[in-house]
Protein backbone atom coordinates (compact mmCIF):
# COMPACT_ATOMS: atom_id res chain seq x y z
CA UNK A 1 0.00 0.00 0.00
CA UNK A 2 1.33 3.44 -0.90
CA UNK A 3 1.80 6.11 1.71
CA UNK A 4 -0.72 8.97 1.55
CA UNK A 5 0.78 11.82 -0.40
CA UNK A 6 2.05 14.77 1.55
CA UNK A 7 0.05 17.98 1.51
CA UNK A 8 1.71 20.59 -0.68
CA UNK A 9 2.18 24.01 0.92
CA UNK A 10 3.19 27.26 -0.76
CA UNK A 11 4.01 30.47 1.10
CA UNK A 12 4.74 34.04 0.08
CA UNK A 13 5.46 37.40 1.70
CA UNK A 14 3.72 40.31 -0.04
CA UNK A 15 3.66 43.72 1.67
CA UNK A 16 4.92 42.25 4.92
CA UNK A 17 8.16 42.22 6.89
CA UNK A 18 8.88 38.47 6.74
CA UNK A 19 8.09 38.36 10.46
CA UNK A 20 5.32 35.86 9.85
CA UNK A 21 7.73 33.60 7.96
CA UNK A 22 10.09 33.87 10.92
CA UNK A 23 7.09 32.90 13.08
CA UNK A 24 6.55 29.83 10.88
CA UNK A 25 10.14 28.84 11.70
CA UNK A 26 9.27 29.44 15.37
CA UNK A 27 7.45 26.10 15.21
CA UNK A 28 10.97 24.91 16.09
CA UNK A 29 11.58 21.16 16.30
CA UNK A 30 7.92 20.44 15.58
CA UNK A 31 8.85 21.40 12.01
CA UNK A 32 10.22 17.84 11.74
CA UNK A 33 6.79 16.51 12.71
CA UNK A 34 5.13 18.90 10.27
CA UNK A 35 7.49 17.98 7.43
CA UNK A 36 6.27 14.38 7.70
CA UNK A 37 2.88 15.68 6.61
CA UNK A 38 3.73 18.43 4.15
CA UNK A 39 6.16 19.38 1.45
CA UNK A 40 6.84 22.96 0.46
CA UNK A 41 6.38 24.08 -3.10
CA UNK A 42 6.71 27.74 -4.10
CA UNK A 43 8.03 29.50 -0.99
CA UNK A 44 10.90 31.70 0.19
CA UNK A 45 11.80 28.70 2.36
CA UNK A 46 12.55 26.62 -0.77
CA UNK A 47 13.57 29.62 -2.89
CA UNK A 48 11.18 28.43 -5.61
CA UNK A 49 9.75 31.42 -7.45
CA UNK A 50 6.95 29.64 -9.32
CA UNK A 51 4.48 26.85 -8.66
CA UNK A 52 5.65 23.43 -9.86
CA UNK A 53 2.09 22.05 -9.50
CA UNK A 54 -1.17 22.70 -7.72
CA UNK A 55 -0.90 23.08 -3.93
CA UNK A 56 -3.26 22.20 -1.11
CA UNK A 57 -2.47 25.14 1.14
CA UNK A 58 -1.24 28.64 0.31
CA UNK A 59 -0.02 30.82 3.17
CA UNK A 60 -0.01 34.56 2.47
CA UNK A 61 1.92 37.04 4.56
CA UNK A 62 1.36 40.76 3.95
CA UNK A 63 -1.26 42.79 2.12
CA UNK A 64 -1.16 44.25 -1.37
CA UNK A 65 0.75 47.51 -1.80
CA UNK A 66 1.82 47.14 -5.45
CA UNK A 67 0.71 45.50 -8.68
CA UNK A 68 3.13 42.62 -8.28
CA UNK A 69 1.52 41.74 -4.92
CA UNK A 70 -1.88 41.56 -6.62
CA UNK A 71 -0.49 39.41 -9.42
CA UNK A 72 1.18 36.99 -6.99
CA UNK A 73 -1.88 36.82 -4.76
CA UNK A 74 -4.14 35.95 -7.71
CA UNK A 75 -1.58 33.34 -8.79
CA UNK A 76 -1.79 31.81 -5.31
CA UNK A 77 -5.58 31.77 -5.44
CA UNK A 78 -5.46 30.01 -8.81
CA UNK A 79 -2.96 27.41 -7.65
CA UNK A 80 -4.01 26.67 -4.05
CA UNK A 81 -7.08 24.89 -2.72
CA UNK A 82 -7.04 26.66 0.63
CA UNK A 83 -5.65 30.17 1.18
CA UNK A 84 -4.58 31.24 4.66
CA UNK A 85 -3.90 34.90 5.40
CA UNK A 86 -1.26 35.00 8.14
CA UNK A 87 -0.66 38.09 10.27
CA UNK A 88 -2.35 41.47 10.52
CA UNK A 89 -0.85 42.84 7.27
CA UNK A 90 -2.50 40.12 5.19
CA UNK A 91 -5.72 40.35 7.21
CA UNK A 92 -6.27 44.10 7.32
CA UNK A 93 -3.27 45.84 5.76
CA UNK A 94 -1.26 46.18 8.96
CA UNK A 95 1.64 48.61 9.26
CA UNK A 96 1.90 49.38 5.52
CA UNK A 97 -1.76 50.46 5.63
CA UNK A 98 -0.70 53.40 7.80
CA UNK A 99 -0.03 55.20 4.54
CA UNK A 100 -3.74 54.98 3.70
CA UNK A 101 -4.43 57.42 6.50
CA UNK A 102 -1.99 60.19 5.60
CA UNK A 103 -3.97 63.27 6.53
CA UNK A 104 -4.62 66.58 4.80
CA UNK A 105 -3.38 65.49 1.43
CA UNK A 106 -5.06 65.23 -1.94
CA UNK A 107 -2.26 62.92 -3.11
CA UNK A 108 -1.30 60.82 -0.09
CA UNK A 109 0.86 58.39 -2.08
CA UNK A 110 2.90 61.23 -3.58
CA UNK A 111 3.27 62.83 -0.17
CA UNK A 112 4.39 59.52 1.30
CA UNK A 113 7.04 59.01 -1.41
CA UNK A 114 8.27 62.60 -1.23
CA UNK A 115 8.76 62.38 2.50
CA UNK A 116 10.44 58.98 2.19
CA UNK A 117 12.86 59.99 -0.59
CA UNK A 118 13.12 63.79 -0.79
CA UNK A 119 11.77 65.97 1.99
CA UNK A 120 12.23 63.74 5.02
CA UNK A 121 14.52 65.30 7.62
CA UNK A 122 16.81 62.31 7.89
CA UNK A 123 17.01 61.42 4.21
CA UNK A 124 20.32 61.27 2.36
CA UNK A 125 19.32 60.77 -1.25
CA UNK A 126 21.92 62.28 -3.58
CA UNK A 127 19.75 61.86 -6.70
CA UNK A 128 16.80 63.79 -5.16
CA UNK A 129 14.52 61.51 -7.11
CA UNK A 130 11.77 59.10 -6.23
CA UNK A 131 12.88 55.67 -7.58
CA UNK A 132 11.20 55.22 -10.95
CA UNK A 133 12.94 52.31 -12.62
CA UNK A 134 10.60 50.48 -15.05
CA UNK A 135 11.52 47.22 -13.31
CA UNK A 136 9.91 48.41 -10.07
CA UNK A 137 6.31 47.31 -9.63
CA UNK A 138 3.86 50.22 -9.58
CA UNK A 139 2.55 51.15 -6.16
CA UNK A 140 -1.19 50.97 -5.65
CA UNK A 141 -3.14 54.02 -4.45
CA UNK A 142 -3.71 52.25 -1.14
CA UNK A 143 -2.59 49.17 0.74
CA UNK A 144 -5.29 46.51 0.47
CA UNK A 145 -5.94 43.52 2.72
CA UNK A 146 -5.79 40.19 0.86
CA UNK A 147 -9.52 39.62 1.30
CA UNK A 148 -10.16 42.73 -0.83
CA UNK A 149 -8.41 41.04 -3.77
CA UNK A 150 -9.20 37.32 -3.55
CA UNK A 151 -11.30 34.96 -1.48
CA UNK A 152 -9.44 34.07 1.74
CA UNK A 153 -10.42 30.85 3.50
CA UNK A 154 -8.73 31.17 6.89
CA UNK A 155 -6.92 33.83 8.88
CA UNK A 156 -4.21 33.46 11.51
CA UNK A 157 -4.23 36.73 13.46
CA UNK A 158 -1.18 38.18 15.14
CA UNK A 159 1.78 40.47 14.53
CA UNK A 160 3.39 38.02 14.26
CA UNK A 161 1.35 34.96 15.29
CA UNK A 162 3.19 32.65 17.70
CA UNK A 163 4.72 29.43 16.42
CA UNK A 164 2.27 27.53 18.64
CA UNK A 165 -0.77 29.14 17.03
CA UNK A 166 0.56 28.46 13.52
CA UNK A 167 1.47 24.86 14.33
CA UNK A 168 -1.88 24.12 15.99
CA UNK A 169 -3.80 25.71 13.14
CA UNK A 170 -1.90 23.83 10.42
CA UNK A 171 -2.09 20.55 12.35
CA UNK A 172 -5.86 20.84 12.69
CA UNK A 173 -6.25 21.77 9.06
CA UNK A 174 -4.07 18.86 7.91
CA UNK A 175 -6.06 16.53 10.16
CA UNK A 176 -9.14 17.55 8.21
CA UNK A 177 -10.89 20.23 10.22
CA UNK A 178 -9.98 23.55 11.84
CA UNK A 179 -11.75 23.96 15.17
CA UNK A 180 -10.78 27.55 15.97
CA UNK A 181 -7.92 29.06 17.94
CA UNK A 182 -9.49 29.30 21.39
CA UNK A 183 -9.90 32.90 22.49
CA UNK A 184 -6.91 32.79 24.86
CA UNK A 185 -4.64 32.28 21.81
CA UNK A 186 -5.96 35.15 19.68
CA UNK A 187 -3.66 38.19 19.48
CA UNK A 188 -3.82 41.09 17.04
CA UNK A 189 -0.41 42.47 18.06
Amino acid sequence: MTEPRKARVATVSLAGCFGCHMAILDIDERLIELMKLVEFDRSPLTDMKTFTRRCDIGIIEGGCCNEENVHVLRDFRRNCDVLIAIGQCAIMGGLPAMRNAIMHSDAPLRECLEEAYITGRYIRNTTHNIPNDPALPLLLDQVYPCSDVVQIDYQIPGCAPSGDVIFNMLSQLLAGRFHGFGHENIRFD
Binding site: A97, A101, H104, D153, Q155, I186
Partner: peptide, 22 residues
Amino acid sequence: MAYRLDMTAPTKMPYLEPCREL
Protein backbone atom coordinates in the same frame (compact mmCIF):
# COMPACT_ATOMS: atom_id res chain seq x y z
CA MET B 1 -13.85 41.93 23.06
CA ALA B 2 -12.78 40.72 19.60
CA TYR B 3 -10.58 38.10 21.32
CA ARG B 4 -13.40 37.03 23.62
CA LEU B 5 -15.87 36.77 20.76
CA ASP B 6 -13.40 34.86 18.52
CA MET B 7 -13.26 37.46 15.76
CA THR B 8 -10.90 35.55 13.46
CA ALA B 9 -12.89 34.62 10.35
CA PRO B 10 -12.25 36.37 7.03
CA THR B 11 -14.75 39.07 6.19
CA LYS B 12 -16.09 40.68 3.08
CA MET B 13 -16.89 44.02 4.73
CA PRO B 14 -14.81 46.95 3.47
CA TYR B 15 -12.53 48.94 5.75
CA LEU B 16 -13.84 52.51 5.73
CA GLU B 17 -10.43 53.94 6.75
CA PRO B 18 -11.46 57.37 8.00
CA CYS B 19 -8.94 60.18 7.63
CA ARG B 20 -9.93 62.55 10.44
CA GLU B 21 -7.36 65.02 11.67
CA LEU B 22 -5.46 64.23 14.87
